[in-house]
Amino acid sequence: MGKLGDMANKAKEMAKGHPDQADKGVAGAERVVDERTGNKYDAQTDRGADAVRRSYGSDGTTER
């Protein structure tokens, strides 16, 4: 696997070990995108954030 794939796998493993922190990061990234786009793509960012959370086993119920 290439370096990018290795980095993605390491990030996923770290997120699995620290889901609360990972949830905060995902929520922050989602918030920034929504702010910069004027919430134009809110539904898409919600689905994307949910997909990321599922990838490391979070249900997204931690405080955002």
Rank of each mutant, 00 (worst) to 15 (best):
A27Q: 03
E35C: 03
N39Y: 12
G48E: 05
E13L: 11
A49G: 04
D34S: 10
V32K: 08
T37F: 02
R64G: 14
A8R: 13
M14Q: 12
K10E: 12
S55F: 11
N39I: 09
H18Q: 08
G48F: 05
E63V: 13
N39A: 11
R47K: 14
Q44Y: 03
T45L: 05
R54G: 05
A49C: 03
K12Y: 03
A22F: 02
D42G: 11
R31K: 08
V52F: 02
G2H: 09
G60M: 14
V52G: 02
R54A: 13
D50M: 10
E30I: 14
A43R: 15
G57I: 06
K3S: 15
K24T: 05
R54P: 00
Q44T: 02
Y41D: 13
G38H: 06
L4S: 11
E13Q: 12
K10G: 04
K40N: 11
G17M: 05
D23E: 04
A11W: 05
E35N: 10
D23Y: 01
Q21E: 07
Y41E: 14
G60N: 11
A43E: 15
V32P: 00
K3P: 07
A22H: 01
D46L: 14
E13S: 09
M7V: 15
A43F: 14
Q21F: 00
M7C: 13
G60L: 12
A11C: 05
E35H: 07
K16W: 01
G48R: 01
Q44L: 10
K12P: 00
D34H: 07
P19E: 12
A51V: 02
D50W: 08
E63H: 13
N9M: 12
D46T: 14
L4R: 13
G25C: 06
S55P: 04
D46G: 11
G17V: 04
